[in-house]
């Protein structure tokens, strides 16, 4: 079997184990939190009587192990279960986890995609150019700008953008609320400011990593040789340095893309964008375990998938890793 295929198979089966481990950790964590769904949702008005009625309805009175096993069993049959919020609903009117997570996942992927399409080419190009003209004016300018953009908290960038491009100049919407009927163009328009915020946040990281990796490689003997052969600096970078810099660059891109899917809670809060992140935070505070589990699995799958790609690229671009002894 080709080593790449073998690695791939290994990785996929490991990923399933990882997902299982994640679901156990999440379940244990929510169990360890003080209070449960009933007391969390009732808050101050949680009399023991009401809490007990609630717990019976959702089945929270059963032992944790049993609840986990039942949940897992249903999941293996493709059923994510119902949100605990639908406790007491008549048959056929339960709120399924998929009906909550589905539209939000679409929103999250849309925003992440929009940002990635803009940010990845920009940061690669800027990184290469900065490495090419390192220590020149261009390098310093790009460095300073990107540094500043990651140096302030996300919500602060978001508020500033909102102030200038929604309040002062009414070009974009300050709210990114979209629902299932929102049309594509309208969706893009509403997502402009949150996307811009995220672009500013991740371009810096990706661009700097690209630049650092390439500069690091420029000192290697074989690049030196290429340079001594009289090749142009651009050619040296693109043909000799870049292929060997792919591992760390792709790694950093994967981390940032994963971040776009899983880590944008703050931006979602500021622009009131209905993504999975906010759903997960809300569901954690409501102790709505089935929803939290579904969100966690979605995130885990996105994360594992992206990293698998990153590792494959690392193996493919390093011949020594490709043909291990």
């Amino acid at each position: 079997m080709h080593p790449i295929v073998r690695t791939l198979l290994q990785r996929v089966s490991l990923s399933v184990a990882t997902l299982l481990a994640v679901s156990v950790i999440i379940f244990l964590m929510i169990e360890a939190l003080p209070g449960n769904f009933a007391s969390a949702i009732l808050g101050q008005s949680a009399t023991p009587e009401r809490v007990a009625a609630f717990e019976r309805q959702i089945g929270l009175d059963r032992p944790p192990v049993e609840r986990y096993v039942v949940w897992l069993g249903n999941l293996l049959q493709g059923d994510f279960g119902n949100s605990l919020a639908s406790a007491g609903s008549p048959v056929g009117h339960e709120r399924t986890v998929m009906s909550l997570v589905g539209p939000r996942l679409k929103n999250t992927m849309f925003l992440a995609g929009l940002v990635a399409v803009v940010a990845v080419p920009i940061s690669l190009a800027l990184g290469l150019l900065a490495a090419l003209y390192r220590n020149g004016i261009f390098d310093r300018l790009v460095n300073l700008t990107t540094l500043t953009s990651i140096s302030v908290p996300e919500f602060f960038i978001a508020y500033i953008l909102m102030l200038f491009f929604a309040v002062r100049l009414p070009w974009f919407h300050s709210l990114a609320t979209v629902n299932t009927d929102t049309e594509l163009l309208e969706r893009v328009a509403r997502c402009t400011l949150p996307a811009l915020t995220l672009v500013l946040v991740i371009v810096a990281h990706m661009m700097r990593m690209t630049r650092a990796s390439i500069i690091n490689l420029l000192a290697s003997p074989y690049v030196e040789t290429a340079r001594l052969k009289g090749l142009s600096p651009a050619r040296v970078i693109v043909h000799h340095a870049l292929p060997n810099a792919w591992a760390p660059i792709v790694n950093v891109i994967a981390v940032n893309l994963a971040y776009l899917v899983v880590g944008v809670v703050v931006v979602e809060v500021v622009f009131v964008y209905p993504g999975v992140g906010q759903l997960m935070v809300d569901s954690v505070s409501a102790r709505d375990i089935p929803v939290v589990q579904a969100c966690a699995l979605v995130f885990a799958i996105a994360y594992i998938g992206l990293n698998l790609i990153a590792d494959l690229v690392a193996i493919i671009t390093n011949p020594r890793l490709l043909r291990p002894r």
Partner: peptide, 13 residues
């Protein structure tokens, strides 16, 4: 694998 499991859970959450 251990790190993968830990990283697969969103850091902020």
């Amino acid at each position: 694998r251990l790190v993968d499991v830990l990283m697969a859970i969103p850091q902020l959450v």
